[in-house]
Design a protein around this nucleic acid. Structure first.
Lengths: 211, 211
DNA sequence: TAGATTGTTAATCGATTAACAATC
DNA sequence: TAGATTGTTAATCGATTAACAATC
């Protein structure tokens, strides 16, 4: 029997790998495959089969010796584990290039991220729309989010504005913040913050390149 | 004496933290600070002082008991370690929202990423410019990069086009690829690939939010 | 001086990998 | 059946943290 997914702390690196597994599974699915083994997935992502097997086991997925995993079932379990089987309603603040990129990013095809409201402070873009969402003024955030509260906030404003935006979002009921501004937010206990630092991948790249 | 930075394998997590250290140092610098301790930096980033101290030690930085580190010197050493003391000339392929975001991202203020050439396949944007760079046609990539070779390639095209773009870049002399397309690239040994997966941070966020 | 902080070695913690019995 | 693959326990590896002597 698979390890129980509940009550067991799943390592952060495992969670980070799950979206890639989902993408590979979806591709296999489109090829008409019915069963998939850890080896198949590992090969596709340059990982070791044992690692994939362990990760699957931690999410509660169960396979069958010799056959592998039932593809549809496995994908469903991974999506459930990630809570990507339900829409994740979110508000995005900062409709610049990065915000626009997130609104249209194809890599999110399966994560059910539903960006419901978009705010920006630039009067020139307020009122226009991106991917069918009308951009509201940041000054209307209190009004709008009070009427229509959202649990997740995405911050794509310049660093200087990020802390204030975060404070206001938290005051308006946002419980988790995905922050793309290169600044560490100071927020109350219990608020979940995922800090995205695009520089860190580039750091790795330059260090590897010159060694 | 500090551990020698050369000959010692610096852990990947350490390298990933360095850009944040640089940003904090720059902020301190602008406040006019002359000396900085590991404790100061740790506090700013919610890390433990011992971790900052260890990281600094790995980069070869040397401090003084009681005083801490000489701010300017420390920043210079970190930037040197990252090779961010010299311009990193790069080519970007895919001038969509994500590509545009990277061209203008303020979080890169210090990393000396110099995007020299920008290519896109959309005839409507070819010839126009973004942040002062003229967008060239992807079909002109061979001509352009043969005349003006670049060591780093940034891929911000849709997943379906990424592998072909990567192959062509490698054939044109690119030795390191920063890939934002949600697909694992298959490239020859020795080519450095940094895979950026925006979904993995979101996975962490949703799992934490619902537990 | 006393206290704060460094740098290094050792201990701990956590993730990856190996080993292997179970089994379709 | 034989072989491939699972799931779990144990071993290994690597990163973080603790301890502490050195010192400005």
């Amino acid at each position: 029997m698979a390890e129980q997914a509940k009550n067991i702390k799943v390592p952060e690196p495992t969670i980070r790998r799950l979206p890639a597994y989902c993408r590979v599974l979806k591709a296999f699915q489109q090829q008409g495959m019915e069963w998939v083994s850890a080896t198949d997935i590992a090969q596709e992502l340059d990982l070791k089969p044992i690692q994939v097997r362990k990760d699957m086991s931690l999410t509660g997925a169960e396979g069958r010796p010799k056959r592998g995993f039932l593809l549809n079932e496995l994908l469903e379990i991974l999506l459930q584990f990630l809570h990507w089987d339900e829409n994740q309603r979110a508000v995005l603040v900062g409709a610049g290039a990065l915000g626009t990129a997130l609104l249209g990013y194809s890599g999110f095809a399966m994560n059910r991220l539903e960006i419901v409201s978009v705010f920006d402070s630039n009067p020139e873009v307020v009122g226009s729309s991106i991917y069918n969402r009308t951009i509201e003024a940041v000054s209307d955030m209190e009004d709008s989010l009070t009427k229509n509260p959202l649990p997740v906030g995405i911050i794509t404003v310049p660093a200087a504005a990020a802390q204030e935006v975060a404070d206001r979002l938290v005051a308006l009921g946002v419980r988790a913040i995905w922050n793309f501004a290169p600044i560490k937010l100071k927020l109350p206990e219990g608020i979940i913050v995922e800090q995205e630092d695009l520089s860190s991948g580039f750091a790795l790249l330059t260090v590897k390149l010159h060694s």
